[in-house]
Nucleic acid binder design. Structure first.
Ligand SMILES: [Mg+2]
Length: 225
DNA sequence: GCGACAG
DNA sequence: ATCTTGTCGC
């Protein structure tokens, strides 16, 4: 696929793709779920995809990919900055997972198409947006107990949930990406948070990307010798 | 015009 | 996201 270069073109693509979003119930219970994330180092965007069996949460496989960072970070356009590298990592997996947990928003987005939704439509696969902070919407703070959650509302519409995945930590902003309902998204995320604030697959993708970054040293300074 | 604003 | 050691509260 050819990626848009300008914000105007990116916006047009989002408006065109949002019409293909499907928020119906999961066709079948996922047996494999995959966490994806990206990091930046020396002009490169490093992405990772980590697959787990579900609901046992046993790690199955992982893949990493790196591409030059071309698009700037602009709230509302994260898909175009991280999307290319994340898809490259996913393409290196042995088998396409049943569902993806993406570090970012699903439909809780200005135009209803955050990176989780965007990737779901492109892959035609169920996706869930799992963000560490809010992009849009209003909400009431969920109580401090694990599993407590409140609705995230945007323009009079329910677009997600604010979920406490562990006691004593900041809540996660969960929103359906594609081919899943909000209730299913919350249930799957909570079932995947066994040790940390983040779901195991997302946490592992984040950790792996941090390790792989070290393999991209700064461009050598012209040596004087 | 001003402030908000995923990663 | 990234730059970074110790410190604090659950
Ligand atoms: Mg991230």
């Amino acid at each position: 696929m050819e990626w848009p270069t300008t914000i105007a073109d990116a916006k047009r693509l989002q408006e065109e793709m949002v019409g293909r979003v499907n928020l119906t119930t999961l066709a079948r219970k996922p047996s494999t779920i995959c966490g994806v994330d990206a990091a930046y180092v020396n002009g490169q965007t490093v992405a990772a995809a980590v697959v787990y069996d579900y609901p046992t949460l046993t790690c199955r496989e992982d893949a990493v990919a790196a591409l030059p960072t071309t698009f700037p970070y602009i709230p509302g356009y994260l898909s175009f900055r991280e999307g290319p590298a994340i898809l490259a990592a996913i393409n290196r997996l042995t088998t396409l997972p049943d569902l993806f947990i993406v570090d970012g928003q699903g439909i809780a987005h200005p135009r209803g198409i955050g990176i989780a939704t965007f990737l779901g439509v492109l892959l035609d696969r169920p996706t869930i947006g799992s963000a560490k902070s809010r992009l849009v919407g209003t909400y009431d703070e969920p109580s401090d107990s694990r599993g407590s959650w409140t609705l995230l509302t945007y323009r009079e519409r329910t677009v997600g949930a604010v979920l406490r995945t562990r006691q004593g930590v900041k809540p996660l902003f969960i929103s359906p990406g594609h081919l899943v309902t909000l209730d299913e998204a919350v249930a799957i995320i909570l079932a995947s948070c066994t040790r940390y604030r983040l779901p195991e697959p997302q946490r592992e993708a984040d950790r792996l990307v941090g390790i792989k970054k070290r393999e991209f040293p700064p461009l050598g300074e012209p040596s004087s010798a």
